[in-house]
Design a protein around this nucleic acid. Structure first.
Length: 290
DNA sequence: GTCCAGGTGAGTG
DNA sequence: CACTCACATGGA
């Protein structure tokens, strides 16, 4: 690892990896996590001891020092936005605490989660694929798509020792020649035509994923649903995980179950306003990991 | 083998 | 509107 950095806010790589918002994050060896976005690759591990080294070395979980494989420049330019480092999650947790007992417990359980700001096209396709699939199955399919259509990546020379072949998630242009059978070979099943529709709309200019960044939350949500196979849940996931619309709270089977069993059938997310999406993520994590 | 998975579109009443 | 139902496939 080339560089050492300090992160003051809540930041738990393992929880983020298994949080269900990203499908290509890998723990290459214990405590070393690999992230990919665009054509950038980074390996991160939390340092074993506190930076002070004053003899009272803190536990792994509380060290604020991290080792990263990229330069400080790339970290600031690419990875700080990706990890949403401009937002103070500890502060948000404090502020949203006290409204519901169940939420308070979820926040405590999920402390260290963050909402990643991921690639728009990758999120659109990944969450189209996600419907009626388990998280491991989504990961396999997204990995297969990357391997079939994406650019081969090499990270800092140091990559090959730690990991197998790396591929970027393909751009829409790289998927232009994809056929129904190509996609079905990646395990997409009945979702393959949905992905073809997304490719067609993006390449045809009917859907400008960067251009719609300017839309307000509701208009963005509606625009994404024009793609065949994108309903409310998938659209909200893309709004939250690619466009950082923290007020969007996707309702999947787990969140629906939480609303029924823990909130008396009343959707609590409007109460969390602009942080609803963040709170949703803690509750989703808690439902699956308590 | 059997069950279920971060849903959606189409069809029906 | 509200309510069914089929949908392909892999992982547990």
């Amino acid at each position: 690892m080339g560089t050492s950095i300090i992160i003051e806010d809540d930041f738990d790589l393992k929880k983020i990896q298994i949080s269900g918002q990203c499908f290509r994050v890998k723990e290459c060896e214990p405590n070393v996590f690999r992230f990919i976005t665009g054509e950038n690759v980074v390996y991160i591990r939390r340092a074993k001891e506190s930076a002070e080294g004053d003899g009272s070395a803190s536990a792994d979980e509380t060290s604020k020092r991290f080792e990263i494989s990229c330069s400080e420049d790339i970290w600031k330019k690419v990875w700080e936005p990706y990890f949403d480092m401009g937002r103070n999650y500890a502060d948000i947790c404090r502020r949203e605490c006290g409204k519901h007992d169940f939420t308070d417990r979820a926040i405590e359980c999920g402390r260290g989660l963050r909402i990643l700001k991921q690639d728009k096209w990758e999120m659109l396709i990944s969450f189209i694929i996600s419907q009626r699939k388990s998280i491991p199955a989504i990961s396999s399919a997204v990995e297969a798509v990357s391997r079939k259509f994406g650019t081969r990546l090499y990270a800092d020379g140091f990559t090959k020792d730690l990991d197998e072949e790396l591929y970027a998630f393909p751009t829409a242009e790289q998927m232009a020649s994809a056929t129904l059978d190509d996609l079905k070979e990646c395990g997409l099943g009945y979702r393959a035509p949905y992905v073809l529709d997304a490719i067609r709309k993006v390449l045809g200019g009917e859907l400008d994923l960067d251009g719609i960044e300017a839309l307000d939350d509701e208009a963005l949500f509606e625009k994404l649903m024009e793609v065949h196979g994108v309903g409310m849940k998938v659209s909200n996931c893309v709004c939250l995980f690619a466009y950082a619309r923290m007020g969007r709270a996707p309702v999947d089977v787990w969140i629906a179950r939480a609303i029924d069993d823990e909130f008396g059938g009343v959707n609590p997310f409007p109460e969390y306003g602009g942080n609803a999406g963040i709170i949703q993520q803690y509750i989703f994590y808690y439902m699956k990991n308590r």
